[in-house]
Amino acid sequence: MRNRLLNAWRLGLKELMSLWNDKVLLIMIVWAFSGGIYSASTATSQELHNAPIGIVDEDRSVLSERIAGAFYGPYFRPPEMITEGQGDAGLDAGLYTFVMIIPPDFERDVLAGAQPSIQVNIDAMRVSQAFIGANYIQNIVLGEAVEFVQHRRSETVAPISLAPTILFNPNLTSAWFGSVMEIINNVTMLSVILTGAALIREREHGTLEHLMVMPLGAFEIMLAKVWAMALVVWVAVLLSLYFVVERALAVPIAGSIPLFMVGTLIQLLATTSLGIFIGTLSRNMPQLGLMMILVILPLELLSGGMTPRESMPQAVQFIMEFAPTTHFVSLAQAVLYRGAGLDVVWPSLLAMAAIAAAFFTASLLMFRRSIAAQG
């Protein structure tokens, strides 16, 4: 056993040297855990920010001008005063997210207590902005109308008092959530790519046949690729947490980074084994890319990192219980956001370890069968 581990160590060093000579993969790794995380966290904001709005003012009154002047940054861009035809064309062209139409005699009807309506057309393809912006517009318009009529802004006294307390992300900053989720997605994607590409590269260059004639077994060859590629991604995750998430994005890490890195190591064992499995089934790089689409997208989209698992069908929730990313997302959110310790996340660690062992065993059997067929 000692000789087998030593062989795996030496083969792993060879894999690291091969990766070092592959500048394209190196650039992809560096970008994925630096600029990729930063841009994905800051450029895909879920808050209402600089939303374009057009206003069709058919009343031209003091109240309508007051409502138009109440829309300002950072939530909205300065509103554009347009005609009704320009509003429809602007929505079709994607120039506006919101178009508000103030009808004629609006101020007169408000003062008369006739409760006139303001039409708001919303581009609902921008789902998050549409939902949040509709509430903002309603509050702004009602507040300005009430203050205009009563000459002061008053609030209705509610029979109860609701005191919400926002935990873990008090400013509701999407970058705090997006940065960690992007790291999780990159861990899954790159570990599968690196191990699968390493195996395909051996086959395309003919070096796999050279390894087969040496006193090496499938276990040593596979273990070498797993530990080498896992180490590269593991180090990249650690550096990204310290320099990108904590420093550049100023995201506070509530829990233990060493505990998270232990979970990352178990996740990497599962995903690198999955990469070997896909690489064994694929015959070239294009096939590897196509098969990765079928595997990576469900792992990322259905793991609970982008949408809550509770909103998914029960069948999907059950199937994803056997995916390592589901438990990795749960562990990462518990440790990094809520400061959970080992007493809380041990079920996730145990589930990840069991899935990783199953993936490694299945990949080893498939890889061993592939080598035997070639021999």
Rank of each mutant, 00 (worst) to 15 (best):
E310L: 14
Q317E: 02
S303N: 08
S330D: 13
R338C: 00
Y337A: 12
A334E: 13
E310W: 14
L336K: 09
A323Y: 00
A332H: 07
Q333P: 02
M306K: 12
E321V: 05
E310F: 13
G304S: 00
A323I: 12
E321F: 05
S303P: 11
S330I: 07
Q333Y: 06
P324Q: 09
A332F: 06
S303R: 09
Q314A: 12
V329K: 02
I319Q: 04
V335C: 04
V329T: 09
G304N: 06
A323V: 14
S311N: 13
M320N: 03
H327Y: 15
A315R: 09
Y337G: 03
Q333N: 14
M320W: 06
A334S: 15
F328T: 01
V329R: 04
E310P: 01
L331T: 04
V335Q: 10
Q314G: 10
E310N: 10
T326L: 03
P308C: 08
F318L: 15
G304Y: 02
S311M: 13
V316R: 01
M306F: 12
R309W: 02
S330R: 15
A334L: 12
L302I: 03
A332K: 02
P324F: 02
P313L: 10
V316M: 10
A332Y: 03
V316F: 01
L336I: 06
P308T: 09
P308A: 11
E310C: 01
L302Y: 06
P313C: 05
V329M: 07
Q314M: 13
M320R: 02
Q333D: 07
M306T: 10
A334R: 08
V335I: 14
L336E: 02
H327V: 07
A334M: 10
E321M: 11
F328I: 09
F328E: 06
P324N: 10
Q317L: 03
F318G: 00
A315V: 13
L302V: 03
Q314V: 13
F318P: 00
P324R: 11
I319L: 15
V335R: 13
M306S: 13
A315W: 14
R338E: 15
Y337F: 15
R309Q: 08
T325S: 13
H327N: 11
P308Y: 07
T325F: 02
Q333F: 09
M320K: 07
G305Q: 06
S303M: 05
H327F: 09
M320F: 08
Y337N: 15
M320P: 02
G305D: 03
I319W: 12
I319V: 15
M312L: 14
I319R: 03
A334H: 04
G304V: 01
P324V: 03
L336P: 00
M312S: 01
A315H: 00
F318S: 08
Q333S: 13
P324T: 07
G304Q: 00
Q333L: 14
G304P: 01
F322D: 04
Q314C: 00
L302P: 05
R338Y: 05
L331Y: 05
M312Y: 01
I319S: 00
Q333C: 03
R338G: 02
R338V: 03
A323R: 03
M306H: 08
S330L: 14
P313F: 10
F322N: 04
